[in-house]
Write a protein that binds this DNA or RNA. Structure first.
Lengths: 317, 317
DNA sequence: ATGAAAGCGCTAACAT
DNA sequence: ATGTTAGCGCTTTCAT
C-alpha cells in the first residue's frame, strides 16, 4: 500500500518512506501494472476515440490532435478506432471498445447505427459526440451545425452578388448535411433556376484535390453559367482552383469558389481561398476537458456546446 | 468456463451449450471485461503506436491508417501516443505506455531518447520501428533509408541536367537525414559551388504549404542561380510551386521542383509534382502483420524490411 | 465437453 | 501514516 500510495498520491506518504519507495522503483525498474489497477478500481484512464477515417486533409484531424493532447495532459490515454462509413462496422467496433471498459468515448461525427447508439447509452459511460450537432444526442455534444454552415455559405455568396450556384460535395454524413443547407438557402435566395436542380458533382469520401479538378471539369461552369461554387472541403476547393487556372477560368471574376475547414493551406492558394472556419482546436479541447470533468465527477450532467463557425473572406470569393 | 470458451474458442463447446450461452449473452447485454481477461492471461491485445505528431499532410499518416486497419482485423486495438519532437516527453510517454502492458509497440520514426530505447528493450516486448531505417534497431524495423532517399533526389536532378541545387527542409529527424543525403550527393555531383554551402531554407515541423512559399521567397532562386529545388515534403513543394507561379518563375524551365511523399494531391498540382514515393500502405501493413506474427509466436526472431522508394517523374522536374 | 479451484497485481475499505 | 484483508472478472490448470 505504501508503494501504491507513493505512486498515486505521494502527499499521503511521509518523505522518508516515499524516498525509499522511489529508490526501490528505480533500482528494480518497476513499472506499475495499470491493467491490475484498472480491474480493481474500475477506472481504466482510457478514452476511446472513434473517427470516420484516418486521413490527411480531414478537417477534424486538428480536433483529434487537440483532444489527444488535452487527454494526455490529464493522464488519459487515447485508443483510436476507425468507424469507416459502414454502420455494421460501427456495432462491432463499439462492442470491441466497450470490452476494454474505457472511462469515456468520444465519437467524431455522430454515430450512425441506432443499435450502436443505444448500446453506448445503455452502459451509462460518458460520451461526447464531437464535430457535429444532433437533435438526439447520446450524451454530450461539442460541435457546430453543418446544415447551418451550408446555409451560411450560400448566404455569403448571395451577399457578394452571385447569381447562380453550383457545388462539389462528398457522400459523407456531415458533408451531406452541409449540402442540404447550401441547397436550401441557395434556392431561397434565387441562386438556383426555378424547377431545376442545383448543378452538383458528388464524390466519395475522403476528399482529395483530384475531386475538385474533376468536379470543375464535370460541372463545366462556363456552359452551365454558374458564377459561384461551394466545395465540401478545402482540399476539393483547392483542386477546383487549380483546374480553373488550367482551364483559364478566372477566380473570382468568372467563378467564386468557397471551401470548408480553413485548413492550414487555405491562405496560401492562388487566389487565397475563402472558406468556412471551424475552431477545431477549441472543439477538441472542450471535448476532452468536459469529458475529464464528467469522469472525475465535477462535470455537467448535460452539455451541448455549439462552437459555431465563421466565413473567412479571402480572394477566391 | 463454458461462457469463456464459447466466446473465445466456440469450437470447443457443444452446440447446445453454445447456443444457450449466446442467448444469455444477448438477453443480458453481457459485454466481456477484457481488463480482467488481460490481467489473468497477460495479453492485452493492445498495441501502442507512437507517432511524431498527429498532423495532416504527414506522409506517414497513410502508414498509420494501414496499420490500424490490419491490427483491427487481427483483433488488436491501437493506442495512440504523440511523441512530439522532445526526448523528455518520449521517456514519460514510454512509461505511461508500458504501464498498460501493450502486446507490442510500434514507433513511427525511430525513438530519439536513448533511455526510452533501453527501457523498451529491457521489457522484451515486441517493437517495430516503422518508416525509417536504423543501424541500431530496438527490435524489428520496417521502412526505408531517408538518407538514401535524399541522395536519390540529388542524383535524379543531376541526371536531368540540372546544375545548381537548393533546398527547403524541416527540422525533424527524418527530414534531416534526407537533407544530409541530398547535400552529400549534390556536392559529389557538382550541384553545389565549391566551398559554398547549398542554399537552404529550414523550417519547423510539421510542414505546411506556407513554408514552401516562404522558402522560395527567402532563397530567391533567380538571384542565387539555382535551377533545382528539393523540398522536404510534398506540401512544401506544392507551396513552392504556388510561389513560383505567383512570382513568374516558370517550373520546370527556370526551376525544377521535387517533393517527398507522393501524397495524393501530387499528381494534381500545376505543374504536376515530381516526387519520391514511398509505399506507406505496404509499410504500415507489414509493420502490423509482422508484429502480430511475432506476438502470436510465429514471427521472425529478427526483422529488417527495407521497402525502398522510387522517384515519380512528373512535369515539375 | 464441462467444471472447480486458484490467482493475475493491484486498490478500496477498514484497522491500527 | 502505514498496514491488513479481500476481491475486481476473468483464464490457466487440472479434474472429472
Amino acid at each position: 500500500m505504501t508503494v501504491s500510495r507513493t505512486l498515486s498520491a505521494p502527499d499521503s506518504v511521509k518523505e522518508k518512506a516515499r524516498l525509499r519507495v522511489l529508490e526501490a522503483v528505480r533500482t528494480t525498474g518497476y513499472v506499475p501494472n495499470l491493467v491490475a489497477g484498472s480491474l480493481r478500481s474500475n477506472r481504466t484512464r482510457l478514452i476511446a476515440c472513434l473517427v470516420p477515417v484516418i486521413s490527411s486533409g480531414s478537417a477534424f484531424l486538428t480536433a483529434v490532435q487537440a483532444m489527444s493532447a488535452a487527454f494526455a495532459a490529464a493522464g488519459y490515454q487515447v485508443m483510436l478506432g476507425e468507424k469507416g462509413y459502414d454502420p455494421g462496422r460501427e456495432e462491432q467496433l463499439v462492442d470491441a471498445i466497450l470490452a476494454r471498459r474505457p472511462d469515456g468515448v468520444v465519437v467524431v461525427g455522430v454515430m450512425q447505427s441506432e443499435q450502436a447508439r443505444s448500446r453506448l447509452r445503455a452502459t451509462g459511460i460518458p460520451v461526447v459526440e464531437a464535430w457535429d450537432m444532433t437533435d438526439d444526442p447520446i450524451d454530450m455534444v461539442v460541435g457546430f451545425s453543418h446544415y447551418r454552415a451550408g446555409r451560411a455559405i450560400a448566404a455569403y455568396l448571395h451577399s457578394q452578388g452571385r447569381k447562380r450556384a453550383g457545388m462539389i460535395t462528398v457522400s459523407e454524413p456531415r458533408a451531406v448535411a452541409r449540402a442540404k443547407g447550401f441547397v436550401a438557402e441557395a434556392r431561397r435566395l434565387g441562386l438556383v433556376r426555378k424547377g431545376e436542380p442545383l448543378p452538383t458533382h458528388t464524390v466519395d469520401a475522403p476528399s482529395r484535390m483530384r475531386h475538385g479538378r474533376d468536379g470543375v471539369t464535370a460541372l463545366r461552369p462556363v456552359d452551365c453559367k454558374i458564377d459561384a461554387l461551394y466545395c465540401a472541403s478545402d482540399l476539393i476547393a483547392h483542386g477546383a482552383l487549380i483546374e480553373c487556372a488550367s482551364q483559364g477560368i478566372v477566380v473570382p471574376e468568372h467563378l467564386a469558389v468557397v471551401g470548408f475547414g480553413d485548413l492550414d493551406f487555405a491562405a496560401d492558394t492562388l487566389p487565397a481561398l475563402t472558406t468556412l472556419r471551424v475552431d477545431s482546436r477549441a472543439i477538441g479541447h472542450a471535448a476532452a476537458t468536459n469529458m475529464v470533468a464528467r469522469i472525475e465527477g465535477e462535470g455537467p450532467a448535460q452539455l451541448v456546446l455549439d462552437f459555431g463557425f465563421e466565413i473567412v473572406r479571402r480572394a477566391s470569393a
